[in-house]
Structure formats: structure tokens, C-alpha cells
């Protein structure tokens, strides 16, 4: 079986500073994979490399058996990979509904049509309404995205990645800045919506990590120091030393 996502020897540096060195990783289709690591480990850079935001120095990225190295972000999206951002990135002047609808347009077959009514894509509108309910943003449907509360914006940020029906989804710290209750709701949502898809997420909240993840990769100082099922990562001495430290008691 081919992996949903396969990273083969990725290297990236900014000027003389080496950010990522020889990252290789295989993520099986239909699993939930979490990437953890201390700040500055290169987690977000890794996402940027996979999704075409940044160019690789060396190495290859394969998505569902296809080499996507060097493709533009929109070309990668069209091959079934969607992502969210650590720093919320929405369409501030457009309503919540329009934000989600734009995210679903490519896979709904809207193309660049300027001769068809957008409202005529009934299935897309249905998908968006459904997502509004799942995100509990129904009452905020017609509010501009920049008028939303922070937690609502974070929920919409995740929604933009989920609505288009991509088979592989990368979420960069989806629960950052959320309260405990909001985090729990998000975990439930992700569990539900990741069924039948591959989910890769960067996450700091260890309870979320061990709750959701089928496999975990630990990134530290630009390299993979451990990768595998939660039980094995939990027991890894190098992981404890490099990253978990004071948080180690959470794991036992």
C-alpha cells in the first residue's frame, strides 16, 4: 500500500542556517499522525516545504504515489492536500459562509467560471452549511471573518482546510490559543472528520496528541529523533531528554 505522504531526505536552510536535515517520513493513508517538538525545531517549515510554500534544497515529497516536489501550492492542493495555518489566515472582509465556500470551490468544480451563478452550485452550498454546523458557527454565518472572536477564527481556519474534501490534511497547531472546552470540541470534530482521510498535525497540547494520534514524530533541532506509535515514542529516552523534560510526567 502506498503512503498518503512520503518525505524522502528533505533538506532546508535559510542562508547559512540549516533548518531541516535529512527528514524522511512515511505516513500511512487513513491514519492520524502528529508532529511534535520544541519551538524552533522546524515543524512549520516542514509543512511549508510539503505544501509548496517554500522550496526544498534537496529531497522529494510524494503524495499518494505521485512526486509533488517543486509544485506550486495550488497544484498540490489539486492533488488532494489541504492545510491550515498556525497564524490564522482567512478572508477578513468576507462572511464566514463565503470563506468556507471559497475553500470548497475548487473541488466542487467551479473552475474560474464567470458565466455561472455561484449560488447555482447547490451541493457546495450544502457542504458549507454542513461544515458551519459542525464548526458550531451556524449563528455566525453572515458575519465578516475579521469580526469573529479569536476562537471562532481558529475554528474557521480549520474549517477552510476540511471543507474541500482533500484526502490528506495538514493542520498547523489547530488548537493553539483555545480554551480546554474548545480544544475538546475540536478534538471531537477532528476525530469525526478525519475518518477515511489522512490527518497530519503539528500540536503542542500533549493530551490532544496522545488522544488523537495513531503515530507520532518527534522533531528536534532540524532532525527526526523518534517516530512511531505513541507507546514507543513515550518510552524513548532521547525524546524525554530532548523535548519532554518537565512535561514527562504527563506521559506516564
Amino acid at each position: 500500500m502506498t503512503s498518503a505522504l512520503s518525505l524522502r531526505g528533505l533538506y532546508k536552510s535559510f542562508g547559512p542556517t540549516s533548518i531541516l536535515r535529512d527528514i524522511s517520513l512515511d505516513i500511512a493513508a487513513g491514519t492520524r499522525h502528529t508532529i511534535i517538538g520544541p519551538n524552533g525545531a522546524g515543524k512549520s517549515t516542514l509543512f511549508h516545504l510539503i505544501t509548496g510554500r517554500l522550496r526544498l534544497d534537496r529531497g522529494e515529497v510524494w503524495l499518494a504515489g505521485e512526486n509533488i516536489t517543486g509544485l506550486s501550492p495550488h497544484a498540490i492542493f489539486r492533488r488532494g492536500l489541504a492545510r491550515s495555518f498556525q497564524v490564522t489566515s482567512l478572508f477578513p472582509r468576507l462572511s464566514v459562509f463565503e470563506n468556507l465556500r471559497i475553500a470548497g470551490m475548487r473541488n466542487a468544480g467551479c473552475g474560474h467560471a464567470f458565466w455561472r451563478r455561484l449560488d447555482g452550485f447547490a451541493e457546495l452550498a450544502e457542504q458549507v452549511e454542513e461544515m458551519l454546523t459542525l464548526l458550531e458557527l451556524g449563528p455566525r454565518r453572515d458575519v465578516a471573518a475579521d469580526a469573529l472572536a479569536y476562537a471562532e477564527q481558529r475554528a474557521l481556519e480549520i474549517g477552510l482546510a476540511l471543507v474541500g474534501g482533500a484526502h490528506t490534511i495538514l493542520l498547523d497547531e489547530p488548537t493553539a490559543g483555545m480554551s480546554r472546552a474548545e480544544t475538546e470540541r475540536t478534538v471531537t470534530l477532528l476525530r469525526r472528520l478525519s475518518a477515511g482521510r489522512t490527518l497530519v498535525m503539528i500540536e503542542h497540547d500533549l493530551s490532544v496528541v496522545f488522544d488523537l494520534a495513531d503515530t507520532i514524530t518527534v522533531l528536534a533541532d532540524g532532525g527526526v529523533i523518534a517516530s512511531g506509535p505513541p507507546a514507543s515514542v513515550r518510552g524513548d529516552a532521547r525524546v524525554r531528554a530532548a523535548y519532554l523534560g518537565a512535561a514527562a510526567e504527563v506521559l506516564t
Binding site: 501550492p73 495550488h74 492542493f77 471559497i102 470551490m105 474560474h112
Partner: peptide, 23 residues
């Protein structure tokens, strides 16, 4: 009111995000 019209609004607001939504 068409897909292109709405996409133009999206590009006005946040071109980077549009790129990551397949356009």
C-alpha cells in the same frame, strides 16, 4: 455573483490563502 467574482474578492483579501485552496 459568479465563482470568478467571488475568487477576485478572495484574492483581494488574502492571495496567499487562495493559493492553498487550489487556485
Amino acid at each position: 455573483r459568479t465563482p470568478l467574482g467571488r475568487l477576485a474578492n478572495a484574492v483581494r483579501d488574502n492571495p496567499l490563502r487562495v493559493d492553498f485552496l487550489g487556485y
